[in-house]
Design a protein around this nucleic acid. Structure first.
Length: 493
RNA sequence: GGCCCGUUAGCUCAGCUGGUAGAGCAUCUGACUCUUAAUCAGAGGGUCGCAGGUUCGAUCCCUGCACGGGUCACCA
């Protein structure tokens, strides 16, 4: 991929020179006392006098990212990707030969250094190098120091460069993974247990989406990469696990956009003896928790809008939401033929399968979604678009379901779980009709799941939260590719 | 998939109505023992995304393709 430039030749030459000088360019380890971040954290606030008095001797290691070479003394910066530390190298401390050697190290090389800490005239914490060890060679030239790596394609294809060149990028991912850690702690402290369920499923279920297909040779069967873990997690409720969650990948064979990656991370959790109202409360508590832990801010700026992440969040009935933001009346929306006609009129005949479910989805997305900037629970979805939710105890034709929207995105989806096997089978059969009407994504009948329900599933509520989108909101990022370490890109030939 | 934009040195970017390319950083050589976008003096580095076309002549105009970005459609 990379052509050999003069600079690469020089770096390769330097590598050879190291070997010839008897210096191992790829040693096995370095016995460092503290990492760069610890040093910066512990000693940054100390005064020049304190440092001088305490004579703090330490050793650390990192990648060289800046060189300022002078005749008899030079300055370098090394980084661990997060923090950087200035090094001061003096000829009369390390000796002429070693000084000359260090000067040949390139930007990107790893070094281990040992010495005392002091502050320069300008007040920067600096390590006077007394001894050093070469730790690894960087053979390719690095991006530029002022602007970093700007090219989005390179940033995604060579994320490792992005991570140690662009601190903002590094921060997004640190935040993401700390958030996931806190979510685990939040659920663990509520007696949840984290489980793993199949990624490869004979019948893809639990969501409405096109799956990836793969093949198992020994069994000679096609399998589907899961589009959701839902039906397996609910089998665990049948099996006696009362509180379970899974944080893992789902795969959907659909378009790639600023909000969609073919594989994405989902938190799904199920809680026995609870209903959708309980999970609405739990969801608000989770946001509160993430704010208290310093993961999320109370307010976040997203595309110029200030989003208030601290609960409580507003609530809006699904049908009323459409009535509010569209020219349609409640009666229009509940009238199936009329709504289908309206949706088909909007979308064009070729673009919409004429089922009530598809029409509902379509008008909701068309009229409502872009208005949902502040966190909003959309409630009580119609049965036609909620094949796995329990019928609403007060509203006929509706289900006990909620979706949490913010920043024009769906972040969470939860409901009281349908545990009546007869109704569930009936709903699956209605999905089959939709499939016959041309809806390729309608749910398939999973008889094995029905069988599990026939053994009895306790009343329960479950919810899925999109981890990538949650990261986007918390970090104020517009593109899902910015929050996925290695987003899917077309391979470059 | 449609439309719009981008692709020029390792990186970040200029490049006028078409006359075979420039800067900064990085690299190399030299000077410099508190620099921090270090400084000073010099040097090297390019199949202008790919393939065609128009033209005496194309980085520039046209067509196609590739990859990326944005947007719409699709997608819970």
């Amino acid at each position: 991929m990379s052509e050999i430039t003069d600079e690469i030749k020089v770096r390769e030459e330097k590598l050879r020179n190291l070997k010839e000088a008897g210096i191992e360019p790829y040693p096995y380890s370095y016995d460092l006392k503290e990492n760069i971040s610890d040093i910066v954290k512990k000693y940054r606030e100390k005064s020049e006098e304190e440092l001088e008095k305490e004579e703090i001797e330490t050793s650390t290691a990192g990648r060289i990212i800046a060189k300022r070479i002078m005749g008899g003394a030079s300055f370098f910066h090394i980084t661990n990707g997060k923090d950087k530390l200035q090094l001061y190298l003096k000829k009369n401390i390390v000796g002429n030969e070693r000084y000359k050697l260090f000067k040949t190290f390139d930007l990107g090389d790893f070094v281990g250094v040992k010495g005392k800490l002091f502050k320069t005239r300008t007040g920067e914490l600096t390590l006077v190098v007394e001894d050093f060890k070469f730790l690894s060679k960087c053979l390719l030239p690095l991006p530029e120091k002022w602007h970093g790596l700007q090219d989005k394609e390179l940033r995604f294809r060579q994320r490792y460069l992005d991570l140690f060149i662009n601190p903002e990028s590094r921060e997004i991912f640190e935040k993401r993974f700390k958030m996931i850690r806190e979510i685990r702690r939040f659920l663990d402290s509520r007696d949840y247990i984290e489980v793993e369920t199949p990624m490869m499923q004979p019948i893809p279920g639990g969501a409405i989406a096109k799956p990836f297909i793969t093949h198992h040779n020994a069994l000679n069967i096609d399998l589907y990469l899961r589009i959701a873990p839902e039906l397996y997690l609910k089998r665990l409720l049948v099996g006696g696990f009362e509180r379970v969650y899974e944080i893992n990948r789902n795969f959907r064979n659909e378009g790639i956009s600023s909000q969609h990656n073919p594989e994405f991370t989902m938190l799904e959790f199920y809680q026995a003896y609870s209903d959708f109202e309980d999970l609405i409360k739990l969801t608000e508590e989770l946001f509160e928790y993430l704010i208290n832990k310093g993961i999320a801010s109370e307010k976040v700026n997203f595309e110029g809008n200030e989003i208030k992440l601290s609960p409580p969040f507003q609530k809006l009935d699904f049908i009323e939401a459409i009535a509010k933001y569209s020219p349609l009346s409640k009666e229009d929306i509940l009238n199936k033929e009329k709504l289908i006609a309206h949706a088909v009129g909007l979308a064009g005949e070729d673009n919409l399968v004429p089922t009530y479910g598809k029409a509902l989805d379509y008008v909701f997305d068309e009229y409502v979604k872009d208005n949902l900037i502040q966190p909003t629970f959309i409630l009580n979805h119609p049965e036609e678009i909620s094949p796995l939710s329990k019928p609403h105890r007060k509203m006929p034709g509706r289900t006990e379901r909620f979706e949490l929207f913010m920043a024009k995105m769906e972040l969470a989806n939860g409901f009281s779980e349908l545990n009546d096997p007869d109704i569930q089978l009936q709903r699956f059969k209605e999905q089959v009709k939709d499939r016959e009407a041309g809806d390729e994504e309608a749910h398939l009948i999973d008889y094995d799941y029905i069988k599990a329900l026939q053994y009895g599933m306790p009343p329960a509520a479950g919810e899925g939260i999109g981890i990538d989108r949650l990261t986007m909101v918390i970090t104020g990022t517009r593109s899902i590719k910015e929050v996925i370490l290695f987003p899917l890109l077309k391979p470059k030939s």
